[in-house]
């Protein structure tokens, strides 16, 4: 059996409890082609997993919105910067 078929078969025979772990892992690291294909087939007939995946997509999209919001906020204020420079200088003298 090729790796592709073996991985796909493993994913297709998993329980949904394990599928959700894979959906999440997929956001952090590439799955094997067989695993990814298995998941894709699984969501064709599993409403619960389809909804879970939808929610992850929604979360990712809100995450981008939050990143954009945070990026528009002001950066390090000048007075804080000056105080940190001063603190760095003191720390250097101590060492």
């Amino acid at each position: 059996m090729t790796g592709f078929v073996r991985d796909m078969a493993r994913v297709l025979t998993m329980r949904c409890r394990e599928h959700v772990v894979l959906f999440s892992r997929q956001l952090d690291t590439p799955l094997s082609r067989g695993e990814a294909f298995g998941l894709r087939v699984h969501v064709l007939y599993c409403g619960g997993c389809r909804r879970f995946r939808e929610h992850l997509v929604h979360l990712a999209s809100l995450g981008r919105e939050l990143a954009a919001q945070s990026g528009r906020e002001p950066g390090l204020p000048a007075d804080v910067r000056t105080r940190i420079y001063a603190r760095v200088a003191t720390a250097t003298k101590k060492n």
Binding site: Q26, L27, T29, P30, L31, S32, R33, A36, V43, R53
Partner: peptide, 9 residues
């Protein structure tokens, strides 16, 4: 993009 993500999403 990770292969899996590109495949499924």
């Amino acid at each position: 993009a990770p292969v899996g993500v590109a495949d499924v999403m």
